[in-house]
Amino acid sequence: MSTKIDRAFYDIGHLDILAEADTPLHRLDPRAKLLTTAVFVVCVVSFGKYEIAGLLPFFLYPAVVIGLAELPLSFLLRKLLLVSPFVIFIGIFNPWLDREVMVQLGPVGISGGWVSFASLLLRFSLTVGAALLLIATTGFGTICMALEQLGAPRVFTVQLLLLYRYLFVLIAESIRMMRAQSLRSFNAKGRISYRVFLQMLGNLLLRTIDRAQRIHMAMLSRAFTGEIRIVRQFSFGYKEACFLAGFGGLFLCLRLTDLTALLGSLVLGITG
């Protein structure tokens, strides 16, 4: 029963460990990676509904990042698969509603719906993949610092950091709670009734509020005055500028010009 929660827990920890590696990409200033990811996502989603060809070259970026940062592809793919249901749920209506044949491949006519569905899946893999790559090469704490340097309010970034810090503590606590519950419930296969669920949640909430009070105590005893301060020096240097300009430029170029069609017709022209 608790495999789902164990798995989620393990996954966060795993991304955390990936982010601790020391590769050229990991060493890059987080702002460069954050902004590059933003340009990437906007370029990808700005394509037309039926675009497929133009999206393919964008896989260049994940391939390069995975290579440079030595990330495990299978782990990332599994994470991608895990979150795909909602997009598939919405997208699967496209082939059903949009049946007009759009591309004729010999005897097989492919409807606009299938084309747009395929396009949707490509977008999904690219955008979600980009987010995963960002976290796996940067680490959550560092992303928060970058957000703050890009203008996010301190109150908010501190929230993010605290949430992240206590996520692990509280998930461990709820795992212990569920284990204790399942060891003493003999009736059903790990099912939790509404009443028991409320008791568990209520108790967890009370413990959490008490913990917040103890943390506040610990903060006060270290001269806390309401503001959390952090020293962190990042340097946005020549490497970062190259990374951002290089990839950003490439994405815009791929988006605005029909580079792929040019390349394709060149190849087709040669072979045919």
């Binding site: 929230q159 996520l167 509280l170 669920f197 949640l201 959490t208 903060m219 806390f224």
Partner: peptide, 22 residues
């Protein structure tokens, strides 16, 4: 300033609580 840790920890609570299903 009590709210500073309370907000963060309650957000983490929501996360942990979402993993318990009934």
């Amino acid at each position: 300033d009590r709210k500073v840790p309370l907000m963060g920890v309650l957000a983490a609570f929501v996360f942990a609580a979402q993993m318990i299903n009934f």
